[in-house]
Design a protein around this nucleic acid. Structure first.
Lengths: 246, 246
DNA sequence: TCCCGCTAGTTCCTTAGGGAAGTCAACGCC
DNA sequence: GGCGTTGACTTCCCTAAGGAACTAGCGGGA
């Protein structure tokens, strides 16, 4: 059972990419070139390139060519506890581009809606109970990198700035604190999968790019849930970090 | 610019899967059936099915057929702080199969090797300094779900059970504690991408299945790094959870 | 100098046809 | 009844050919 030609071609190209022979940004040999070099049909060469695209290694632009993708992650730090000097924040196996690139909000909306079922349980509400829903899309350098939707019980936040587009200085959590519901603990649940078409569209994802789904639960004193935040991240743009005691 | 046929077919099937019309385990219409129903060439029907496979929604077995994949995640809890009764452990937007399925170790090895560059910095060692390397593969119900490689400074652990296959009751961290290097804090850095062929092989991954890379740093008192653990998880089998204070 | 149109090169998509390799169940034989 | 074989069905792979959609650069004209 010899490995089929399209796979051998893909293996060759992958090795050249991982070895640095084809560095990020470099143009990968075109379909026509591969047809000549390997003496295969056009479909076969095309399949080989499709494999690399599906692995997230390359990015094809019609009419232009196929290029090696680059990886410049954004560092997302949650539960930051350890001081940088002592615990060596620079200690990483992946050299993240730690340059703090500013994050902008692109499209935002704030609505009061009936609570979806999967959220209701987490917030301790009945399904359909009124919740305020804050919807946003975050950009870095003009490109979308994250979608976020947070849900807050309407009874808890009615009348506050949380129900307005601009939630004011310090954001939602500062307003919750003023209302006597300062978050004290967080739980984040994380799933990873390939994106649905709508998600791929909203985040402008290339082929072979997974998404990270983070469901963040914020709790106030006595374990009262005050917010659920569902985030969808472009996996190719994030390096995530959590810190916690033994 | 009308959407091409193969994409329309894929959209139809995807909708049927997400609507529950085609539940997990159900057989997806075969290539031949799609050729008849949609009146397209075989390659086109094949492409449509390839889209769903690349999205991780289906799994094809040659000679048998294509079936809808199911998602039965393993819950991985890190930094567990909140008590279950008070903080509602059941509160999740994804109903994880919380049944604790036992985890087995499949192939393991323990070696002393020179420290790779990317690890050396994190452990505060020179590149090439001797480290003990513990390599393992974890199975759940006979299927591989995670690879793990941990690195410990040889000077620190020489002579202890950490250098043997069976590290004894309580594992590596218990031995570290006995040596006076009890871990007190952890940092986990997480990346997500599509697997390399070797990773796909070692974890028996289907198409459209990303991997989660976790680099875990363990620190003892005064911020002394004692271990780096690089893990590779089958993303389709894990629901990860982190807890931390505000 | 600037802008427009052309052109060569690129990826993307489809049809038609052939064959290899694996699975599964029904059938016939012992 | 049990067992092996056969055949229908399935996914997988390749070739050949053609056309659509898009891009970047070049050259000519105002």
């Amino acid at each position: 059972m010899p490995t089929p030609p399209y796979r051998r071609i893909a293996d060759d190209l992958r090795r050249r990419i991982l070895d640095g022979d084809l560095p990020p940004g470099a143009v990968v040999p075109s379909e026509n070139v591969l047809v000549e070099q390997y003496e295969v049909a056009a479909e076969t060469a095309r399949r080989a390139l499709a494999v690399l695209a599906a692995e997230g290694l390359t990015e094809a632009r019609r009419g232009s060519g196929t290029r090696v993708r680059s990886f410049r992650p954004i560092l997302r730090q949650a539960g930051r506890r350890l001081s940088a000097e002592q615990w060596g924040s620079g200690r990483s196996v992946w050299q993240a581009d730690l340059d703090q690139r500013p994050m902008a909000v692109d499209s935002a909306s704030v609505d009061q809606r009936p609570c979806p079922g999967r959220i209701a349980g987490a917030l301790g509400l009945e399904e359909g109970a009124p919740v305020w829903v804050r919807d946003r899309r975050y950009l870095v350098e003009g490109a979308p990198v994250m979608l976020a939707t947070s849900y807050l019980p309407a009874e808890m936040v009615a009348g506050s700035a949380i129900t307005r587009l601009d939630s004011g200085p310090g954001g939602t959590y500062a307003r919750l604190a003023e209302l006597g519901w300062a978050p004290t603990d967080f739980r984040e649940q994380v799933r990873v999968r390939m994106p649905l078409p709508e998600e791929a569209l909203a985040l402008a994802l290339g082929a072979g790019t997974p998404v990270v789904l983070i469901a963040r639960f914020a709790f106030a004193r006595d374990g009262v849930p005050v917010e659920v935040n569902e985030m969808t991240l472009d996996a190719s743009r994030y390096l995530m970090e959590w810190e916690f005691p033994a």
